[in-house]
């Protein structure tokens, strides 16, 4: 993902190229990451949760609900909970390329060594487990989706959110990643930190900052995971526009004042 100048925020019209445009109103965002975040010109309308010694604070949950949370699940649960305090019970979309990779690699190593599999670790490795726990934490009766993103990376969550907003007024979106186990790092791009980012999105044109995205077919170079990491960086640096080249598409987006 790279900066684009203000003047080129709108994609050029190009007949024959199918372009998808999405527009949202960003009502709130919340981030936790496993490193200290120096104060800066962050995006408006959101918050960075305290580093808290490298473990996201989830003391607002009963101990019996929080005890099995991995560091990644703690991060997700914390940002989702803070966002839900702003919007109540709404449908949600969770996206992570690799999810609980540290847990499932540990299980695979254990199985290779002839050890028994921890039932709770196994159940928490399922890709929708974190979304399910968040739903339980908030006593939610609303639907949730858990995505891995595929070739559209983090933008798959925006596509789903756009669809959900055709039927409802608000949606919670949560992206989360952590460093892959060492054995994978030579083959795949990976986040260096554990982080979770949540956004409350409503339909475009409402009161608040406008998040506009455009997708067109194209060949690019960036890895899908790099785009999510870059989004976090963009938010923390207060940059308002960027473009991300994925394997089969180019995504351009901007955050504008209302």
């Amino acid at each position: 993902m790279t900066d684009v100048p203000e003047s080129s925020r709108t994609l050029p019209k190009n007949s024959g190229i199918q372009e998808i445009r999405l527009g949202f109103t960003l009502q709130h965002w919340c981030l936790w990451q496993s490193k200290e975040t120096p104060f800066g010109e962050f995006w408006p309308g959101g918050e960075v949760l305290p580093y808290n010694g490298g473990r996201a604070d989830v003391s607002f949950f009963p101990m019996m609900q929080s005890r099995r949370l991995s560091p990644l699940a703690r991060a997700v649960s914390a940002v989702a909970w803070h966002s839900r305090q702003q919007c109540g019970d709404i449908p949600s979309v969770f996206l992570s390329s690799h999810g609980e990779s540290q847990y499932y690699f540990e299980i695979l190593q254990g199985m290779a060594g002839g050890e028994g599999v921890s039932p709770s670790r196994f159940s928490l490795c399922v890709h929708n487990a974190i979304a399910g726990l968040s739903s339980i934490h908030n006593a939610s009766y609303q639907p949730y989706l858990s995505l891995a993103g595929g070739t559209e990376g983090m933008f798959a969550a925006f596509l789903e959110a756009g669809g959900i907003l055709l039927e409802t007024s608000k949606v919670l979106v949560v992206w989360y990643e952590q460093a892959l186990p060492d054995a994978y790092q030579a083959y795949l791009a990976t986040s260096e930190t554990t982080f979770a980012l949540s956004m409350i999105l409503t339909r475009g044109g409402g009161p608040g900052h406008q998040l506009r995205l455009a997708r067109r077919p194209g060949k690019g170079g960036s890895n899908a995971e790099d785009c999510t990491t870059s989004l976090v960086q963009t938010i923390l640096e207060g940059r308002r526009s960027a473009v991300c080249h994925l394997e089969q598409s180019i995504w351009q987006w901007s955050l504008d004042d209302a």
Binding site: G116, V117, S118, P119, S120, S123
Partner: peptide, 13 residues
């Protein structure tokens, strides 16, 4: 019930 399974694995180990 997950705790029961987890405990069983720990006892065996």
């Amino acid at each position: 019930s997950i705790d029961a399974l987890e405990l069983g694995v720990a006892l065996k180990k």
